[in-house]
C-alpha cells in the first residue's frame, strides 16, 4: 500500500513536471496554440479551412460570419505539410461534418519531410502542429508521416507521447508564464485566425530562387488524393484555394497542374493571386511583413471576397437567422473586436 502511494506520488510529480516544461507559446510564436484551440470550437461549422500560414493569417472567419452568416473555423498551423493537413482533416471530420473544406494548395510544393527545410526548423514546426492534437489514430498517423530523421533517431513518436523527453532541458528557461498557463492556455486565435495588426508595406519584391522543380511531387499528390477521397466519403465539398501573397512564389507551372487536377476531379480551384486587385488588397497597407502575409485589414478583405464564392458557388446558407448560432457568434465577434482594438492600441503606442 505504502509502495503504491509512493509510486502514485512519483507519477503525479512527473506529470506536473511535464506540464510545466512543455512550451506555452505565449511569446512571439503564439502559433503553437492554434491546433489545440479547435476542440473548444468543434461542431457547427459550415466551412473548415485547412493549411499553413496562408490560411490562418489570410482569412478572417469573423468577417465570413458578419457578411455572409457562414460559421467557419481554420485548422491552420505554420508550415503545415500536406500529410499533416490530411490527418488534421481526418481528425476534424470525426468531430463534425462541415459543408465545405477549403484547402490551401501552397504546401503541395513540399513533397517530403526533408524538402520542407532544415531539420531543426522542421522539427519545431512538427511540434507546433502535432503537440496540439488530441490523441487519436489521426495524431499517430500525422506523427509517423512527419518525423524528421533526427527525431526518429531520438525516440520519434515516443517523444510525442511523453513530451518531457523532448522538453526536458527547458527548466533553465522557465518563466512565471509556465506556471500561469500550466493547465489552461490563453486563447490566441479567433476561430483559428491569428490576428496581425501591424503594417509593413511591401517595397521591393523579394528576390525569388529559380524554379528547379516544375512538377509537384508524387507524395503531395498522394495525400491530396486521400483528402479528396475522405471528403467524398463524408459528402463534403473540397475547395482548393491559393491564398493571396507575393512570396514565396506560386509558379504558373504549379498553378496549371493544380488547375488540371481540380478539373479532372470536378473540384473548385480558386487562385486568388490574379484576383488581388479585385479583392482590393493594397500591398502598402494590408500586409504586416512586406508582402508575405496579410494583416487583419487584408484578411478581412480576402474573407469578404472569398465569402461570396462560398455563398454563390458552394451554396452555403446564411445562419444569421438561427438565434442559437447567432448568440454564439456574437460572443466570438465581440472577442474579435476587443482583440483588434487592444492590438491596434498596442501597435500605436
Amino acid at each position: 500500500m505504502k509502495k503504491l502511494r509512493a509510486f502514485f506520488c512519483a507519477v503525479v510529480i512527473l506529470g506536473l513536471l511535464q506540464a510545466l516544461l512543455v512550451p506555452k507559446y505565449t511569446g512571439n510564436v503564439r502559433e503553437g496554440n492554434l491546433i489545440r484551440e479547435y476542440y473548444d470550437n468543434a461542431g457547427g461549422n459550415d466551412v473548415i479551412f485547412i493549411g499553413d500560414c496562408e490560411v490562418y493569417e489570410n482569412f478572417s472567419p469573423i468577417t465570413l460570419w458578419q457578411e455572409y452568416g457562414i460559421p467557419s473555423y481554420i485548422r491552420g498551423s505554420p508550415q503545415q505539410t500536406v500529410w499533416q493537413s490530411y490527418y488534421l482533416l481526418e481528425e476534424t471530420l470525426r468531430y463534425e461534418t462541415p459543408k465545405v473544406v477549403v484547402f490551401n494548395v501552397f504546401a503541395l510544393k513540399y513533397d517530403t519531410v526533408e524538402s520542407t527545410g532544415d531539420q531543426s526548423r522542421r522539427e519545431a514546426y512538427n511540434r507546433i502542429t502535432l503537440d496540439g492534437m488530441r490523441w487519436s489514430g489521426s495524431k499517430w498517423g500525422a506523427i509517423q508521416a512527419s518525423l524528421t530523421q533526427e527525431e526518429r533517431q531520438w525516440g520519434g513518436a515516443l517523444t510525442y507521447v511523453f513530451p518531457i523527453l523532448r522538453y526536458h532541458d527547458r527548466w533553465s528557461e522557465l518563466t512565471w508564464k509556465d506556471v500561469r498557463y500550466l493547465f489552461k492556455r490563453e486563447t490566441v486565435s479567433d476561430c483559428g485566425y491569428l490576428m496581425q495588426t501591424g503594417v509593413e508595406p511591401m517595397t521591393d519584391p523579394f528576390p525569388s530562387p529559380p524554379l528547379t522543380k516544375r512538377t509537384l511531387g508524387d507524395n503531395s499528390w498522394r495525400y491530396l488524393d486521400k483528402m479528396v477521397q475522405l471528403c467524398r466519403d463524408k459528402g463534403v465539398q473540397l475547395v482548393l484555394v491559393k491564398s493571396p501573397g507575393l512570396y514565396p512564389a506560386w509558379w504558373p507551372e504549379w498553378d496549371q497542374q493544380v488547375a488540371d487536377y481540380a478539373r479532372e476531379r470536378e473540384l473548385l480551384y480558386i487562385n486568388m493571386i490574379p484576383a488581388q486587385e479585385e479583392i482590393g488588397i493594397d500591398w502598402s497597407t494590408d500586409t504586416y511583413d512586406a508582402g508575405l502575409h496579410l494583416n487583419v485589414s487584408g484578411a478581412e478583405k480576402a474573407a469578404s471576397w472569398f465569402g461570396r464564392i462560398l455563398r454563390d458557388q458552394c451554396g452555403l446558407p446564411d445562419r444569421r437567422s438561427d438565434p442559437q448560432v447567432c448568440a454564439r457568434w456574437e460572443e466570438k465577434t465581440a472577442r474579435y473586436e476587443a482583440r483588434k482594438g487592444l492590438l491596434l492600441e498596442q501597435g500605436d503606442s
Binding site: N28, G117, R121, H293
Partner: peptide
C-alpha cells in the same frame, strides 16, 4: 523574409550576379 512562424529567419543577400539565402 520571415517564415511561417518566428521572425527574420531567412536572409537573402544579393551580389548582382548571384543570390545567397541564409537560415538559422
Amino acid at each position: 523574409t520571415p517564415s511561417c512562424a518566428g521572425e527574420g529567419m531567412d536572409k537573402t543577400y544579393g551580389y548582382g550576379s548571384f543570390y545567397l539565402l541564409t537560415g538559422l
